[in-house]
Design a binder for these strands. Sequence first.
RNA 1: GCAGCCUUAGCUCAGUUGGUUAGAGCGCUUGAUUGUGGAUCAAGAGGUCCCCCGUUCGAACCGGGGAGGCUGUACCA
Length: 508
Amino acid sequence: MTKAKRAKQPKAPKPRLPRGLQDIDSKPFTQQINMVSQLASLCEAHGFCALDTPALEYADVLGKFLPDAERPNEGVFALLDDDEQWLSLRYDLTAPLARYVAAHYDQLPKPFRRYQWGWVWRNEKPGLGRFRQFMQFDVDTVGASGAQADVEMCMLAADFMEALGIARGDYLLRVNNRKILDGILLSLGLDPDDAAYEMRRLTILRAMDKLDRLGMDAIRLLLGAGRKDESGDFTEGAGLGAAAIDKIVDFLQTDDKDRQAVLNRLGTHAQDKGKGAELVKIGLHELALMDELLTQLGYGAERVLFDPSIVRGLDYYTGPVFEMSLNMSSAKSQTGDAARVGAIGGGGRYDGLVARFKGVAIPATGISIGINRLMAAREAMGAMTEAEQEAGKARLVVVLVMDKTRLGDMLALVQQLRKAGIQAELYMGDGGMKAQLRYADIKGAALALIEGEDELAKGVITIKDLALGRQKAAEIADNAEWRASQHAQQQVKKEALIAMIQQKLQIN
RNA sequence: GCAGCCUUAGCUCAGUUGGUUAGAGCGCUUGAUUGUGGAUCAAGAGGUCCCCCGUUCGAACCGGGGAGGCUGUACCA
C-alpha cells in the first residue's frame, strides 16, 4: 500500500490479538483435537458421561470474584447483562458442574460421574505457559465420599498420561491431604480465633506451595521475616518463630521414596495431643486407605506419590488433593524454558461445593487437566502416540489445474481419489502452474498430480513427489545441475494411478 | 498489583554522542533457468523509527506522560 493510500484510511486497525490469547493453527489444533478425543474415550471406557455447559454463567453462580461496578473484571471477565445482572466467563469447569448437579439433582444417577472439556477464561497476567483463555479437561465424581473415588481419579490421571504417550517415570501424580495441612497449622500453636489467623494461614500455605519452585531456603524466609526476589521486590513473610519454622520444614521434607515412608514419617506429627494432631490423624488415615487400593492395583510410587508440600488452591478442597507434574529432564530444553512448564493438572476432594446451592453437603472429587500446557510439555518431551505420528505424515495429494476447460474432469479425478481413501484436493485458486506447486509445497502435500496437454495425449498422469524433490534440492547448489535433476516425478497410466499413489504414500 | 528491562520493515536486529532521501539478514512478491514448488541468480514491494505532549532552527535519538511487551515476584478458583 502506498503512503498516499494509507493516508486516506488512517484508522486501519492493526491485526492484533489481546495479550494472553492465541490463535491455534492447523497442526497444534489437530493435535489438540486428537488429545481431547483420546482422553474422552478413556473416560467413556470408565463409564463417565459427557457434559457440556455454556461459557457464560451468572457471576454469583460461579461464586466468589463477584464483580463490583468499579472493578468488574478482577480475576474474571465479567459483563453486565441487559437486566442488570452480572455475567462471567467461566474460570473453571467445576463451578458450572456444581450448578448443573444442584439444578438436576433429582434426575441424575447418584453418584454422578461426568467428564467435560472446554475453554475457560481468567483475567490475569499471562506468562510462560499461562494464557487468559485455555482449555481444561475435567473428570469428576459427585456423590461419592469413599477413598475409592479419589483413587480412581489418581489412576485415571496416570492412565491419561500414558494414553498420551508420556512414559511411566516421566510423569508423577503427587497427593496430599488438606486435613493434614490444616492439622499441622493448628498444632503450631496459632490461635484460630486470632484476627490475624486466617491471613497467616494463607501466607504459610502459600509459602509451602512454593517449595518446588523456590527451594527450602526461600521457604524458611517466607515463613519467617520475608524474602526479597531478584528484581529487588520484597515479599512479606508469615512471621513465624524458629521452632514453628523448623516444624514445618521437617514436615515438608520430600526425600521419601515411597508412600508408606511418607505415612510413617508424618505419623510422628499425629502423636501430640490436641485438635491439630487429631486432624492430621484423620488425613493420614484417608491417605492410608488410598495407598492400600493404589498398591493393590499396581500403581506404585513412581506414578502416584504422597507429598506433604502439595497445597493446590486455597478454597474449596476439603480432603485429598492431587497435582500432576512432568519430568522434563528428557526434554530438549534449548532455552531452559521447556523445563519450567509447571503443573499440568490437579484436583482433589471438594465436599462443600454443591452445598452452596443445595444446603446439604454432597461429597465430590475430581481432576482437571490443562490441555494447552500439557500439549506444550509433550511437544518439548517429544511424546508422540503412534496415531499422531501417523497423522503427522504427509498424505495430501494436490491435483493441479492445467486447463480450465477441464475442471469437471479434474474434480471427478479428485473425487475418485477420495473414494479410494486418499486425502486429495483440487487447486482452487487462479494461479499458474508455478503458483500451484508452491501451494502444494506450503500445504506440505506429499504428491502433486499433473495432467496437462502432454499427459492427456499419452493417456498418463504425472505424479510429482514433493518430499523427494525437496530432499534433492538440499543436495544441489548448481543451477545447471538443478535443471538437469528432473523434478522427482514420473508418469503413470491412468488405470494404474491409484495403485501407484497408494504405494507412494505408504513409503512416505 | 509490585520491581527491573525493553519497543526501529512480516521476523531477528543494526543505526547516527540531535542534521535533509532510516539500513542489513531472513521472509514476502515478481522475473530468469523447466509446461514444474524446493536450489541458484536478478529485481521489487514493505516503515507514523509504539503513541501523545514538551525542549530545539531541526527529534527515531533529549525530557515528561501514556500504551504495549519481556523477565522476576505476588495472586491463581
